[in-house]
Design a protein around this nucleic acid. Sequence first.
RNA 1: GUGAUUGUAGCUCAGCUGGUUAGAGCACUGGUUUGUGGAUCCAGGGGUCGCCGGUUCGAACCCGGUCUUUCACCCCA
Length: 454
Amino acid sequence: MSIQKPSLPKGTRDFGPLIMSKRNYILDTIKSTFKLFGFQQLETPSMENLSVLTGKYGDEGDQLLYKIVNSGDFLKNVRAEDMMDGSHRVLPKIAEKGLRYDLTVPFARYVVMNRNDITFPFKRFQIQPVWRADRPQRGRYREFYQCDADVVGTDSLICEAEIILMIKKVFKELKLTDYSIKINNRKILTGISEVIGEPGKESELCVCIDKLDKIGWAKVQEELIQKGFGEESISRLEPIIHLPKEDKFSYMADFLNLSAVGLQGLKEVKDVYELLTMSGASEEHLDFDVVLARGLSYYTGAIFEVKVNNVSIGSVSGGGRYDNLTGVFGLEGVSGVGFSFGVDRLYDVLEELNLFPQDSLETTAVMIAHFDQEGLGYGLKVLSFLRSAGICAEIYPESAKIKKQFNYADKKNIPFVIIVGSDEISSGKVTLKDMKSGIQTLLTLEEVSKILKG
RNA sequence: GUGAUUGUAGCUCAGCUGGUUAGAGCACUGGUUUGUGGAUCCAGGGGUCGCCGGUUCGAACCCGGUCUUUCACCCCA
């Protein structure tokens, strides 16, 4: 075999030590927030049976699923006439597993399979990679992590309110200040489609309307006409597009007056606002946006999307209520609501805004340098002492020039170096050098561990 | 999936309408300093010019394909 340059599959990345410590900064923040709100962790397999995955994300979604060919002779069930019928006919015969596309569907599967053991309402969070055979772009990858938190088994709007509280908490800890949490309700969209005289066409309406701030009202109108919306319907829709910031609720109450569903959705949004007030949270960052749609077909109630302002990245978090997700797995009447943080995008945002703390780099606290064989032996004892004191420590593993040892510590950003040589051995102490200031002092081990722990 | 775009040393990039042995900065290795790292100085290593094929006396440069990068559409975290 000839030597070849190694490479990564399109849309995937390595995370080196530097990147990992930054990612952990984000992940730890999210994780501890989820726990703080009473969510418990779940992990599910990377692969699911394709029957679990297909049909849950629409036709587009099915296209983007990674399928895994069967082990062994995966062609053994394929006949020539299947081949003639095309790949859609062959696929189920050669692949029965696929990589998960999101964390919500595997969660729904888990809930259904464990319905008798789960105490409802069930609050779980899940932080794992997902895979999509999308074409990569900036901030879009084929393998990326999602951080989901969902509650199933209750209709309570407290869950919606808590999602907003969690988003606020995470963003506060990540020092993100300029962002907006857009909230809407699928029922309002249904209501709008009823009121403008196009009942039952809300999914088409959503798809178009969702692009409003991207392509503008004029183009949205064009698309609506293309999708068969009447002129009159569109002109009835117009006032919604240019909704004033003030009195949205009362305006919408008038607008949706003839739609029971629409009014219900409006009440839900209002209730969430009230619950937030009762929790002592402000309305800061909250944005009731009646044209927020989001594509996913299974949202039935609240819809969320979070955007960080003034950055080149798309939304960093989103979610909603899906009243009937477990229904497709034969468990009716389990309502759920959840949301997800996009860590990869949050990473890019923090990087762009330069918001990673300087000391977020996870590294060794101290390295032991030594001049000779004797020093190395003494250093090993020092090393054990430090580690049993709970200090992250390492020793330069080979006898090398002191310059080289220091260079290593410097490159690895290790803040302290302990130096051991004949002087230190005879005094029973060690020299501790602060790499930043360059100051070094002869100290006892107790003194050293005090400084390094302090 | 549609339409563009990118690829030269580990990294960032030069490289003249196709001409002999493809360059720089940074990084790396060694020395300057036999108990001291990080903007000193000196020396050195490192490239099938993304890959495959074609045109040509001759290709990093032109043409075709393929992969990769980035971007728009679609959709989405």
